[in-house]
Design a protein around this nucleic acid. Structure first.
Lengths: 152, 152
DNA sequence: TGAAAACCTACTAGCTTGATAGAGATAATA
DNA sequence: TATTATCTCTATCAAGCTAGTAGGTTTTCA
């Protein structure tokens, strides 16, 4: 299960990305429209800003706006930001690899082998799909097949 | 990330399933061989027994043995048993469905739509792969395509 | 100067994880 | 029958995490 924090982050991002170009949205407005605790949302928006995804304007008539275009922000990136590694095992994480304690041999670990498949399947989708895709409902079939397995 | 408990459960199950037919394994032996805290493992084995996956014999020369054949025990089942629903959102869980609070329309929820794809991909693999598959290294390609989408 | 907004830091209740502890029940065997 | 090895059950606990709440500071606009 993803955390509430991540869920709120997605809602907020979708809201900001859906706003007319150049128009900013205040945290209070987002909170009201999506029933998110306001102060909690503020922290989340701040994280999104620190991550370089959102831009903010302070003061009266301030608010939030996309910094990076919505089609460059993947679900995987946002989820990682709030919930940590996507991988089901530390030894399967690319971004924050860590061997399991007491692991004798990664190559021979059946658990790793099985979860690697499952993880790879969902990882590819979360990595490929962006906030923009979600907004305009681009169908799943349009995801280009990932050829480069080398980096895995 | 899956819990330590689930990881231990997989290790233990693989060990019991790998034992020669009819031969039982004691919790102490499994704990020793896989560096799992003994008393903690006992709880886990008990859960596996209550779930009808393992069988136990008490007393001297007791131990654990598979109750159900290893090729009927899926990774999904074991993971659910210890870590709860596989679904990233409550509204995506088949076994323990629950709407998100404050959800206005499931059909129109972009977050649900995106995560549904990712979840379905890994769910199918975890559901299809069994302890027996993991043990004899049956290649992933051999998984039969799931045709019935109706139950989704 | 006042209002509205983002920004920052601290705190907290309740839950979950990953165990540890100790006693009881049962079965083989000496 | 006593011993011993094993599973079984229940309670407890420290540490960390989740989902916030709280209260102030800074910035900007009118």
């Amino acid at each position: 299960m993803i955390s509430n924090k991540a869920k709120y982050a997605f809602r907020a991002l979708l809201a900001v990305a859906a706003a007319p170009a150049g128009e900013s949205l205040t945290s209070a407005e987002i909170a009201r429209r999506h029933s998110i605790p306001h102060k909690f949302l503020e922290q989340i928006l701040l994280d999104l800003k620190k991550a370089g995804i959102l831009e903010s304007r302070r003061g009266k008539s301030g608010g939030y706006i996309m910094l990076r275009p919505a089609d460059t922000v993947s679900f995987a990136e946002v989820l990682r930001l709030f919930d940590g590694p996507l991988a089901p095992l530390p030894c399967l994480s690319r971004q924050s690899y860590r061997p399991c304690e007491d692991c004798i041999s990664e190559a021979q670990c059946e658990i790793r082998r099985e979860f690697a498949r499952a993880h790879e399947a969902s990882r590819r989708i979360l990595e490929a799909r962006t906030i923009a895709d979600a907004l305009n409902g681009r169908p799943f079939e349009a995801i280009p097949a990932e050829r480069s397995r080398a980096a895995s």
